[in-house]
Amino acid sequence: MTAPILSLKDVTLTLTGNAGPVEILHGITLDVPRGQSLGLIGPSGSGKSSLLMLMGGLERATAGSVMALGHDLTVMNEDQLARFRRQHMGVVFQSFHLIPTMTALENVATPLELAGHRDAFDRAADELRAVGLGARLDHYPAQMSGGEQQRVALARAAAPRPDILLADEPTGNLDGANGQAIMDLLFGLRDAHGATLILVTHARDLAERCDRIVGLTDGRVDAARQAAE
Rank of each mutant, 00 (worst) to 15 (best):
M1K: 10
T2H: 12
T2G: 00
P4N: 10
P4R: 10
K9W: 00
D10S: 14
T12M: 00
L15P: 00
N18P: 11
A19M: 11
G20F: 11
I24P: 01
L25C: 05
G27M: 04
G27K: 12
T29G: 15
G35D: 09
G35P: 08
S37A: 14
I41V: 15
G42C: 02
P43E: 12
S44G: 05
G45F: 09
G45N: 08
K48W: 06
S49R: 03
L51G: 08
L52C: 05
G56E: 10
G57N: 05
G57W: 01
L58Y: 03
R60I: 12
A63N: 12
G64F: 12
G64N: 06
G64V: 11
V66E: 11
A68N: 06
A68W: 07
L69F: 06
L69H: 10
H71S: 13
L73F: 14
L73V: 12
T74V: 14
V75T: 15
D79R: 13
F84K: 00
F84D: 02
R86I: 03
Q87T: 00
H88F: 03
V91L: 15
Q94P: 07
F96W: 05
F96T: 06
H97G: 00
L98Q: 02
I99E: 00
I99F: 13
P100N: 10
T103L: 05
A104N: 09
E106W: 02
N107L: 03
V108Q: 00
T110R: 07
L112T: 06
G116M: 04
H117S: 01
R118W: 01
A120C: 08
D122G: 13
R123G: 05
A125T: 14
A125V: 02
D126S: 12
E127M: 15
E127D: 08
R129G: 00
G132A: 07
G132N: 07
G132P: 04
L133S: 07
G134N: 11
A135E: 14
L137K: 09
L137S: 09
Q143P: 01
M144A: 11
S145P: 03
E148C: 06
E148P: 10
E148R: 09
Q149M: 13
Q150D: 08
Q150A: 02
A153W: 07
A155W: 01
R156Q: 01
A159C: 04
A159K: 00
P160S: 01
D163I: 00
I164R: 04
D168F: 05
E169Y: 05
T171K: 11
T171M: 10
T171I: 07
G172D: 05
G172P: 12
N173V: 02
L174N: 13
A177T: 15
N178R: 13
I182V: 15
D184R: 13
F187S: 04
F187R: 03
G188K: 09
L189G: 02
A192N: 07
A192D: 12
H193D: 05
H193Y: 14
A195R: 01
A195Y: 00
T196G: 06
T196R: 01
V200W: 03
H202Y: 06
R204Q: 14
L206Q: 15
L206H: 12
A207P: 01
E208G: 02
C210T: 11
D211W: 08
R212P: 08
V214N: 09
V214M: 10
L216E: 11
L216H: 09
D218R: 14
D222I: 12
A223V: 14
A223M: 13
Q226G: 03
Q226L: 12
Q226M: 13
A227R: 07
